[in-house]
Simulated assay, not measured.
Amino acid sequence: MHDKPLSRLTGRLRDRRRSGARTAHGDTGPDAFGLDEDKVGGFTAGTLGPEDEARLAEEVAALLPLRWSLSPRAEERLSQVNDRVGGDRRLLEWLDGHPGLPRLTARLLVLAENLDHFGENTAVVDAVRARRGRSPLPEELRGVLPPGTDEETLPDIAQRVEELLGERRPQDAARLALATTDWLRGVARDAAPDSPEVTGMSELMAHLHTDIAQASAP
């Protein structure tokens, strides 16, 4: 995974947008998910073998998109893993080291973090609004975004990506993510050339498009 998209992580992954997030995932209850106690214990003690560590990474990847509704026990075990690797950024880097769902989940969550960040940037929001005034949304984004454009537009996409992950639809999440990164690069091409914020956004979206495409390839 490229370093640039990781550089904008806040270090508060598990608390990101907690107050504004919708409870998703249909009938899925928070107690239906968790981390294996023995694996967590072995991992924190440094005695877990590679195969079990890979299985633990799968469990963490399945749990992270549901972090808004975890049971106290699941939250505690996730915190133990998080502390063992050294914090949120290191947690995503650790997941990225395991192919399959862990790597894809890590890269999609990095995209979500960056979409939240750029959703707060006035120049980016203005460029998105201008693009939407000139061109229709790509098919993958129709139904995801309301007609208006404001500071919630990009976070709305981030939230839908996470919802799809929580619904165990990682390939659908990847398709939405790739459509989003491609669309935002088009937003940047249409924007004023003297907008460093939009240029920086375009560069990060290019990195993320490559990262997510690689992680979601069969």
Rank of each mutant, 00 (worst) to 15 (best):
P155H: 11
V124H: 04
L101S: 09
P146R: 15
A177Y: 03
A127M: 05
R22D: 14
R169E: 14
L164S: 02
T199N: 10
R18M: 10
A57G: 06
P196S: 03
E167P: 00
L91M: 15
L204Y: 01
A106D: 03
K4L: 14
D36W: 11
G166L: 11
G97E: 10
P196L: 01
Q159V: 09
L63I: 07
W183P: 04
R189A: 15
L145C: 05
G133S: 05
H117T: 12
Q214W: 05
T181W: 04
H207A: 15
L64W: 10
R8K: 13
R134S: 10
A24Q: 11
L35W: 11
G49Y: 03
N82R: 15
H207P: 01
T153N: 12
T28S: 07
S135E: 13
E53K: 07
V144K: 08
G186P: 01
A62I: 08
P170G: 11
A106P: 07
G87T: 05
L9W: 07
G34K: 08
D3N: 08
L204P: 01
L48W: 03
L204N: 03
F43W: 12
L6P: 01
G20N: 07
S71K: 02
I212R: 02
R67A: 14
A215H: 07
R129G: 09
E162M: 11
E113N: 06
R16N: 11
G119Q: 04
A179L: 02
F33K: 01
L92D: 07
G100Y: 00
L184K: 04
G166W: 09
R8N: 15
R169L: 12
E152D: 15
S7Q: 08
E75A: 15
A173V: 04
S7F: 03
D194Q: 10
D88C: 06
E167T: 03
L208H: 07
L111Q: 11
Q80F: 04
H117F: 13
L178T: 11
M201F: 07
G143S: 08
G20M: 05
G11W: 00
H209P: 06
S216F: 05
P218F: 08
A61L: 13
L208C: 06
D182P: 00
H98T: 10
R14N: 02
D96I: 00
R90V: 06
Q171K: 12
R189Y: 06
L92Q: 10
T122G: 06
A127I: 03
G97A: 15
E58R: 15
L204F: 01
E203H: 02
L154K: 12
R67W: 06
E139A: 14
E113S: 12
P138W: 00
F118W: 13
S7N: 05
L184G: 08
